[in-house]
Design a protein around this nucleic acid. Structure first.
Length: 429
RNA sequence: GCGAGCGUAGCUCAGCUGGUAGAGCACUCGGUUGUGAUCCGAGUUGUCGCGGGUUCAAGCCCCGUCGUUCGCCCCA
């Protein structure tokens, strides 16, 4: 029997992160926290399929198209007629479809949160994945939507992020009408390209921005006016050249006034966002000490979300936490050593003690403890070592030999005290 | 999709100008009185990413390929 079994050497797939149990444990705690905050503001949850019909997803333009994963059966035969399916690329498009489809059954304003994986065929980098989790909240209404919701979004996000163990962050807010109004006034044609250039202000120098603008046919006077606006720290200093700019300035001022009690929420006119469907308020969130890591939470207002799916005007505002990016930034520091969720490990002394040990474990569980029972009567040191490795904080030591008392050992200190399993709680110990 | 770097035990890496692989950690067992994290002893682990070429000889050189990391594009 010399022939070795061939094994497939396991390796990670780039852009598809996975964590060890001790990190996943923290990840779930973060997700729980996010859910609790969202629900405390009255958002309800939905989940949509991993896939949408390709034509639902692919309508956003070529840049987006090239990142879409299409689904196909391996054994598909030529000529098989099936709807082409694609993995969703964000949660906004599925939401639009969902709202259009269930319009008559939804109550408006529709406030929903959604935490799911999304897929993008990008080159993975630090904080950038091919499969990642987003936590979205959106509010959608028929015909019009109060502007104060534009302020509620960052307020909620601020509350969420403040409750997580992360470095200092800053939520930056602008209103697209301001920059787009100026581009209108300057009669700039390729607005999308220009806004994308302005979007790079975080990474590039002023000179390179000017150079890029020049390459896209913006003359020096216009270019310096655009740059001045993007970098202008004071809303009052901006002169509105037209109604659009005026409107944008007023809206932004209104939103900022409502958020004035939050120091790390700032107006920043260089924020424009690449995605074209945003029409007013836009948000981005950066780590203060590492802004080039990218936005960990972005979003904005859109005039009509679902016009491709239903003949109604449905304005909305939404924001999305790039959960995977956020979590990946921290995960190396998040290993608490707590692999198991168990509070206590019940020792199994011998086969004869199995029934008793099992009863102890059940009773402890009824009292609200998470309990793992060791299932093999192995050496005591081995069972202790197991608790140590799994990060289980307490070990329950049932009577053995001639002894009659139960003891609980606290692993961190080594202390052992007598205890009654009928009313012991890890939380009190 | 484009550009650059890297690819040696489960992990982090060493391997000098080519001479058929090593450390630390991890893991397993042991150090008699049920007591883990420390200490001591013993032990297991590799087609040196894959394919081809040069050479008496390749982990080390050349070509290709795949994977991966970083930058660009775009974006959470």
């Amino acid at each position: 029997m010399s022939d070795k079994k061939k094994i497939y050497k396991p390796k990670p797939i780039s852009g598809y992160p996975e964590w060890l149990p001790q990190v996943r444990r923290v990840e779930q705690q973060w997700l729980d926290h996010i859910r609790e905050v969202f629900e405390s503001y009255g958002f309800c949850n939905i989940e949509t399929p991993a896939v949408e019909a390709l034509e639902v997803i692919a309508a956003k333009g070529e840049d987006v198209d090239k990142e879409i994963y299409v689904l196909e059966r391996l054994q598909k035969e030529e000529g098989d007629k099936e709807a082409r399916l694609a993995l969703h690329f964000d949660q906004t498009v599925p939401l639009a479809r969902y709202v259009g489809q269930h319009f008559n059954d939804l109550v408006f304003p529709f406030k929903r949160y959604q935490t799911q994986k999304v897929w993008r065929g990008e080159r993975p980098q630090a904080g950038r994945f091919r499969e990642f989790t987003q936590c979205d909240i959106d509010v959608i209404n028929v015909d019009n939507l109060p502007l104060s919701l534009d302020a509620e979004m960052p307020k909620i996000i601020h509350e969420v992020l403040s409750g997580l163990d992360i470095p200092p962050f800053e939520i930056r807010i602008s209103n697209r009408k301001i920059l787009l109004g100026l581009l209108d006034y300057l009669e700039v044609r390729n607005k999308t390209e220009v806004t994308r250039i302005i979007d790079k202000i975080e990474k590039l120098s002023e000179d390179s921005i000017e150079q890029l603008l020049k390459e896209h046919g913006i003359d020096e006077a216009d270019s310096s006016e655009i740059l001045w606006l993007a970098l202008c720290p004071d809303l009052d200093a901006v002169f509105p050249h037209n109604e659009m700019m005026q409107e944008g300035l007023e809206e932004l001022q209104f939103v900022m006034d409502q958020l004035s009690h939050l120091p790390n929420v700032v107006a920043d006119l260089s924020i424009v966002r690449g995605l074209d469907y945003y029409t007013g308020t836009v948000y981005e969130t950066m780590f203060v000490d590492d802004p080039s890591y990218g936005s960990i939470c972005s979003g904005g207002r859109y005039d009509d979300l679902a016009s491709s799916y239903i003949n109604k005007k449905l304005p909305g505002v939404g924001i999305s936490i790039g959960f995977s990016r956020l979590f990946a930034k921290m995960h190396t520091q998040l290993d608490t050593g707590r692999i198991s969720p168990a509070d206590v490990l019940v020792i199994l002394n011998s086969e004869d003690d199995r029934a008793a040990a099992s009863e102890i474990a059940d009773t402890l569980r009824k009292n609200g403890n998470a309990v793992e029972l060791y299932h093999a009567p192995q050496k005591f040191s081995k069972q202790l070592s197991y608790a140590e490795k799994k990060g289980i904080p307490f070990v329950w030591m049932p009577p053995f030999g001639d002894t009659v008392e139960h003891k609980v050992k606290t692993m961190a200190t080594g202390d052992q005290v007598e205890a009654d399993y009928k009313d012991w709680k890890a939380a009190d110990a």
